[in-house]
Design a protein around this nucleic acid. Sequence first.
DNA 1: TATAATCCTACTCACGGACTAGGAATTCGG
DNA 2: CCGAATTCCTAGTCCGTGAGTAGGATTATA
Lengths: 165, 165
Amino acid sequence: MLQVSQRAHYGLRAMTELAKVYGQGPRSLAEIAEIERLPVGYLEQLAMPLRRAGLIESTRGAHGGYELARPPAEVTVGDVVRALEGQVAPVECLGDEYVAGGCIRDTDCLSRSVWQRVKAGVDQVLDSMTLGDLTVLAQGHGGTAFVPISDLKHGTVSDPCAIAG
Amino acid sequence: MLQVSQRAHYGLRAMTELAKVYGQGPRSLAEIAEIERLPVGYLEQLAMPLRRAGLIESTRGAHGGYELARPPAEVTVGDVVRALEGQVAPVECLGDEYVAGGCIRDTDCLSRSVWQRVKAGVDQVLDSMTLGDLTVLAQGHGGTAFVPISDLKHGTVSDPCAIAG
DNA sequence: TATAATCCTACTCACGGACTAGGAATTCGG
DNA sequence: CCGAATTCCTAGTCCGTGAGTAGGATTATA
């Protein structure tokens, strides 16, 4: 449940690649697609909303490509994912195009209060991580960037997915 | 993004109705569907996994129906939602049918670490709320049951996962 | 001018979510 | 015992959307 689209996953992966080479000039989508094994045509479609959101800048023509518009530490994961998929909204009545009263149950809805908390939790996570944090993790300096997973979940859970480091 | 299915939403709404009348004998799906304005045929399909998960008990025949198998305070929202939609898994490599190494990038994946945190955050939220909490909210005694939303977002609580303590 | 790149639109295609249909099995009230 | 009310179960439909592909126009480099 609560699956994220390939769109967001791919886009975030591409952005981490751009973060790694920040300050070294533009990279072409072909390069990124190669590294991350992503369909380049599809990646093109992801680049547009990212650019319109002001997260990346493009250079056209030969030897052109994309680069981050801001330092990696100033781009949150939430920025990226929201640019690609819109606001976190587990149910429609929590989206920003929702007009109050659109659902008869509206604020009385018990279920809604649940999804509202889920949304708040997810937003909190997404906004607390930057692309800079991620690349630091990749360099093996993990643990200082932000709270380790083991502290997030209750205690001793031995997770096979635990972040390396 | 991160939309939850109608399945989970409907199911949770139905369960809150059962929670409201806990201890008063079984309620038919027709009644619940009426109250929550849900397609009864679809609701039938949701009842089965909830029963198999041991969350509700059924009484067949005339004047039969469903009731919670445990007191509302002992059924978490996570129990309900997972019974209907399976484990929270923003990406496949975080599901429990994922075999280590199935993705070449596996633990090196920067993006994966993001979704792992999202999952942890969501699980924390879902497991910290029970059907009992929700019905208490409905009776206007809200605020004592758990942390108000206003404290969850951009507030004093920096980590959504700190809610439970 | 050839080439490499972004930019943009449109199209396809398969999958899954959200139901509907139709019936069998069970239980209760008369 | 009969009929209504209910759960139980399987199978189908329908439609939107996610995930790409295709093809070209534009812009820059060398």
